[in-house]
């Protein structure tokens, strides 16, 4: 499916990759996400924007069931990826996370070599038949992460020794190496300087040819630059969802307009 011809696709023509209906999330007694319905398209960058604490990261973490690792967190409702309910009892969250990759706010390379950082996912999922195969996967992932040229001569140096921007691209490459179908990014540029941010944004734009990318961001400019669809969250509600251009120029909801123009947030 990744070999689809590289023609420019119109976003509206894409298939629905993730469908969420009536999603509720509770942290203990706190109702963090209320009644969220959203359809996220394949081969599209979807941005989640909203003020801090509005639940956009929480919702993102529902899509790969990362919230399962938090004891007090409870998810209700229905999230389907390719028509399959990911909260079904038969679904193994571990398998799901291999299919739905995630990149975190702060670059978190493992204290291993660059090579081992990338090879980690493929190894635990048995994606490589032999060493040569693994080398190929690592190189491919690093190329997709747009960091191959910078690290190809020091693959066995520790990943923690890279600069912040390089580390984040390494983490993206690491997520890509397991051949996910969806890539979730939780404020991937918030710890990076503008140059590294530009590199990562460029990378996101390339990644959408193969993946459905969902990105949480606090930067409206970033959302406008990289995404085709934007969802605005406020106080646990999904307030507005639509074409990025429309959300930023002609929002329907007054709350969206206030946030975008800087009156709330």
């Amino acid at each position: 499916m990744y070999d689809a011809p590289n023609t420019e696709l119109h976003v509206t023509q894409n298939d629905i990759k993730i469908a969420a209906r009536k999603v509720q999330v509770y942290y203990g007694d706190t109702h963090a996400i209320k009644d969220v319905d959203v359809d996220i398209e394949d081969k599209t960058v979807t941005a989640f924007i909203g003020p801090s604490g509005c639940g956009k990261s929480t919702f993102l973490r529902c899509i790969n069931r990362m919230n399962d690792t938090i004891d007090i967190c409870r998810v209700e409702g229905d999230i389907q990826i390719d028509g399959e309910d990911i909260y079904d009892k038969r679904v193994d969250p571990v398998q799901l996370r291999a299919k739905v990759g995630m990149v975190f706010q702060k670059p978190n390379p493992f204290p291993k070599s660059i090579y081992d950082n990338i090879a980690y996912g493929p190894k635990i999922h048995g994606l490589a038949k032999n060493k040569a195969d693994l080398d190929e996967i690592v190189e491919k992932a690093l190329r997709r992460g747009a960091i191959w040229d910078e690290v190809k001569d020091r693959l066995h140096a520790p990943g923690t020794g890279l600069s912040g921007g390089q580390q984040q691209r390494l983490c993206i490459a690491r997520a890509v190496a397991t051949e996910p179908e969806v890539l979730l990014m939780d404020e991937p540029c918030s710890a990076l300087d503008p140059i590294a941010t530009a590199q990562v944004e460029e990378l996101i734009d390339e990644l959408k040819q193969n993946y459905s990318v969902v990105i949480v961001t606090h930067s409206m400019q970033q959302a406008a630059r990289v995404s085709q669809k934007t969802a605005f969250f406020h106080l646990g509600h999904l307030v507005e969802y639509g074409e990025t251009g429309k959300i930023f120029t002609n929002p329907e909801d007054t709350r969206t307009e206030s946030y975008i123009t800087g009156r709330i947030g």
């Binding site: 990362m66 996370r97 291999a98 635990i124 397991t178």
Partner: peptide
Amino acid sequence: DGSYGLGAT
């Protein structure tokens, strides 16, 4: 988180 996010047990 990084490891769980890659589908590790």
